[in-house]
Nucleic acid binder design. Structure first.
Length: 600
RNA sequence: GUGCCCGUAGCUCAGGCGGAUAGAGCAUCGGCCUUCUAAGCCGAGGGUCGCAGGUUCAAGUCCUGCCGGGCACGCCA
C-alpha cells in the first residue's frame, strides 16, 4: 500500500497534494466542452493546504481563476467541478465555500495510506522525481585557498550542501563542485606571505608587507616550509629589502608587494618560489577540505583554475568569442562586448599587459561545465557577487549557451553576536572568526541549523549565545528532542514487555480522531510538499521551519495523550503515528546535515 | 549617480507565482511534572505588513513613485 503509482504520463504521485490535483484535473477535463470551453492548462490547477481546519484539509481556487474566462459565476463553476470530481477513496467530501473555493475533506484512508508510505519508504520518504534526472552542477563555497574559511563561507557551505541533498532527493542528478582559484596574483601574495614569515622564523628581521596575508594561519605554513627546506630558502633581509619601493602608508601597497614577489623569485628562483606556493596552497586547501568534511560538507569535484588554464580551456573560449566576432581591441586590451548580451557594460578579457582576467577564466569555466553535459548550473554566491551573474550569463550566451541555464542563489552576510553584542569582523584583517572556531564553540548541529533557519536571501544574525545554549531557547534541540522522545517511547514499550504491531497500527489509523492526532497527521503528510517546495525554490530554510512545526505538533500530542495505552489497536495506531513523526524528523534533519539523537 | 536586495508584533524572522480571520520563536504575564524525557505543554497580551497611489471579485503578496537600510558598480582577486 503506497501513495506512489504511475499515472498516465509516467510521473509518480508524491504525497496527497498531487493526487488531489490529479483528481481536480480529471474533473476539469470532464467539464471541457460543457461549462468550460476548453480544459485549463495543467499548471493553473493548484490545490493548497487550508490555513483553517473549518475549510477542510485542502482547498482550490481554480473556480475563481477560471470563472472570468469561462464567463461563469465562481460558485456555479465550483459546484460543477465538485459534481464532476471522480469518486476517490481519499475524499470524504468536497464542497463549495466562500467566494467559490472548492474545499476537500479527506477520508481517514488518505492519511492511513500516507502514513503507511512513510513506514514503507523509510529514509526515502518525501523524495520525488520532479527533477526528472536533470543534470545539475552545484558549485558552492569556492573560497580562495589563501586563508581558512570564515563564518560567511560556513553559511554558503551549509546552504549548498543542504540544497544538494534536497535536489538529489527530488530526482535531480546533482554533482557538487568546489572551484579552486589557484591561479593568479593572490596565490603569489600568499606564497610571499609565507616566505616572509619563514624568513622571520629563520631569524631575519624585515617588515611584513601591508598587502600580505596577515592572519595567524600563515605562521604554521612558514614552520612547515622550514621543516621541509631547512634554511635553503633563507636570504638576508637586507638583500630582500634592498631597493624596493615604499610600502603603504607612505607608498603603494600593491606596487610594493608586486616588487617583493619579483624579488622573491629572483632570490630563491622560480622553482623555489613555486615550491613555497605549492606548499602554501596545498596546506590551505587541506585545511579547507578538512574543515568542510568535519562540517559534513563533501564535494564530488575539486576543480582547479590553474588546471583549467593549462588545459587551454580559456584560450578555447576566447577563440570561440573571437570567431563569433564578440571581441575587440581597445586601449591595448581585449574586450568582450558583454553589453550586447544584457550586461551593463563591456568587459576586459585580456589586459594590456597580456594577462587574462578572472572574467575570462570564469566564462571558460562555465562553458566547460556545459560541455561536461550539465543542463543546469547553480552557483551559490556571496551577496556581494550579484553583479557577476549578468556578466557570466552574457558570456554563456555569446558562447551559444542558454543564459537561463545559470542560476545564482545569493547568500547574504552573516553577523555574529554574543547576546546583544555584535562581534566586529574585518575582511582581510586578522580578526575574522573562522568556521572552525564557530563549529568548535557551538557544535556542528547548531551551526548547520542556525545557518539554515533563515532565508538565504536575508542577512543572518547568528547569536553564539543562543546557539550554544542547551535550553528551550534553542530550536535545534526542540526538533531533536521530538526524535529522542519517540525513541524513549519505544524503550518504554519494550520495558513494559510490549511490542509494536505495525500491521495492526496502520489498520487502525481511523481511530486517531483526536484533534492533536489530526494535527500531527496533517503536519506529517505535508513533508513531500515541503521538500518539493524547498527543491523548486532552492530554499532549504522552508524545511527547517517545517520541522519545527512538526515537532511542535508532536510535543503537543505527547503532552495531551499517552501513547502506550491498554487498548492494543489504539496503542499500535498511536505508535505507528509517532514512529512516522520520528522517521520524517530523521529524514528532514539528515537533509539539513543535523544529527537525530536517540536520547538527549 | 546607476543597478540588485531588503523594510511584517518590543526583538529575530516565516508567509511573497494574489485567495478565506496575517503566523512562529524569543521576550513579558499566568498556569501544568506520583503517569511514555518539563530541552516539553496550555493560556494571555502585543500589528495602519515603511508611506502614497494603481491593477483586481480579492493585495502583506503584482505595478509605479517616494522614504529608510544593505550590497555592488576596476585592465582587483
Amino acid at each position: 500500500m503506497s501513495t506512489r503509482w504511475s499515472c498516465s504520463d509516467g510521473l509518480t504521485f508524491n504525497g496527497m497534494k498531487q493526487e488531489l490535483e490529479e483528481l481536480l484535473r480529471a474533473a476539469l477535463a470532464g467539464l471541457a466542452g460543457g461549462i468550460l470551453t476548453e480544459a485549463p492548462v495543467a499548471s493553473s490547477v493548484v490545490v493548497e493546504r487550508t490555513r483553517d481546519a473549518q475549510h477542510g484539509d485542502f482547498a482550490s481556487n481554480v473556480a475563481l481563476r477560471l470563472a472570468k474566462p469561462a464567463g461563469r459565476k465562481p460558485r456555479e463553476l465550483a459546484a460543477a467541478i465538485v459534481a464532476a470530481l471522480p469518486q476517490s477513496p481519499l475524499i470524504r467530501r468536497a464542497e463549495v465555500a466562500g467566494a467559490g473555493f472548492v474545499n476537500f475533506y479527506l477520508a481517514p484512508e488518505a492519511y492511513a495510506r500516507e502514513l503507511a508510505a512513510i513506514h514503507e519508504r523509510g529514509a526515502a520518504y518525501g523524495g520525488s522525481t520532479i527533477g526528472r534526472g536533470e543534470r545539475v552542477l552545484l558549485e558552492f563555497v569556492s573560497a580562495n585557498p589563501t586563508g581558512p574559511l570564515h563564518v560567511g563561507h560556513g553559511r554558503q557551505a551549509a546552504y549548498g550542501a543542504t540544497l544538494g541533498n534536497i535536489l538529489a532527493a527530488s530526482g535531480f542528478a546533482v554533482e557538487r563542485e568546489y572551484y579552486i582559484n589557484d591561479a593568479g596574483r593572490q596565490m603569489d601574495i600568499l606564497a610571499v606571505s609565507t616566505w616572509v614569515r619563514y624568513l622571520e622564523v629563520c631569524g631575519e628581521q624585515l617588515p611584513f608587507p601591508q598587502n600580505g596575508y596577515r592572519g595567524e594561519y600563515v605562521l604554521p605554513l612558514a614552520r612547515q616550509l622550514q621543516a621541509a627546506v631547512g634554511r635553503e630558502l633563507r636570504r638576508p633581509a637586507t638583500e630582500v629589502a634592498a631597493g624596493l619601493p615604499a610600502d603603504a602608508p607612505a607608498g603603494d601597497k600593491e606596487i610594493y608587494i608586486d616588487a617583493l614577489i619579483e624579488r622573491a623569485r629572483l632570490l630563491i628562483g622560480g622553482d623555489g618560489f613555486a615550491r613555497v606556493l605549492a606548499l602554501s596552497r596545498d596546506a590551505m586547501l587541506g585545511d579547507i577540505r578538512g574543515d568542510l568534511a568535519e562540517f559534513g560538507v563533501v564535494f564530488d569535484h575539486w576543480a582547479s583554475e590553474a588546471a583549467l588554464a593549462d588545459s587551454g580551456a580559456i584560450d578555447h573560449a576566447l577563440a570561440v568569442l573571437e570567431a563569433q566576432g564578440r571581441l575587440e581591441r581597445r586601449d591595448g586590451a581585449v574586450w568582450f562586448r558583454a553589453s550586447e548580451f544584457g550586461d551593463e557594460k563591456d568587459r576586459v578579457v585580456v589586459r594590456e599587459n597580456g594577462q587574462k582576467t578572472y572574467f575570462a577564466s570564469d566564462i571558460a569555466y562555465h562553458l566547460q561545465k556545459r560541455e561536461r553535459g550539465f543542463e543546469r548550473l547553480i552557483d551559490v554566491l556571496g551577496a556581494d557577487h550579484h553583479g557577476y551573474v549578468a556578466r557570466v550569463r552574457a558570456g554563456l550566451a555569446a558562447l551559444g549557451q542558454p543564459a537561463a541555464c545559470l542560476e545564482a542563489p545569493l547568500i547574504q552576510f552573516v553577523s555574529l553576536y554574543r547576546g546583544a553584542e555584535k562581534i566586529p569582523m574585518g575582511k582581510r584583517e586578522a580578526q575574522f572568526v573562522t568556521l572552525r572556531q564557530l563549529r568548535a564553540e557551538v557544535g556542528n548541529d547548531a551551526c548547520r541549523f542556525f545557518y539554515l533557519m533563515r532565508s538565504h536571501e536575508q542577512p543572518l544574525d547568528f547569536d553564539l549565545q543562543l546557539a550554544k545554549s542547551r535550553s528551550n531557547e534553542n530550536p535545534v534541540y526542540y526538533i531533536q528532542y521530538a526524535h529522542a522522545r519517540v525513541a524513549s517511547v519505544m524503550k518504554q514499550l519494550a520495558a513494559r514487555g510490549l511490542s509494536f504491531d505495525r500491521t495492526e497500527g496502520l489498520a487502525n489509523i481511523g481511530r486517531l480522531a483526536a484533534s492533536h492526532e489530526q494535527a500531527v497527521l496533517g503536519s506529517l503528510t505535508q513533508y513531500p510538499e515541503v521538500l518539493e517546495q524547498a527543491a523548486v525554490s532552492r530554499a532549504p530554510h522552508t524545511l527547517a521551519h517545517y520541522l519545527r512545526e512538526l515537532a511542535n505538533a508532536f510535543h503537543s500530542y505527547y503532552n495531551a495523550e499517552a501513547f502506550i495505552v491498554a487498548d492494543p489497536p489504539l496503542r499500535n495506531a498511536r505508535i505507528a503515528l509517532v514512529l512516522g513523526v520520528q522517521q520524517v524528523v530523521r529524514n528532514g534533519l539528515a537533509l539539513l546535515g543535523v544529527s537525530a539523537p536517540e536520547s538527549m
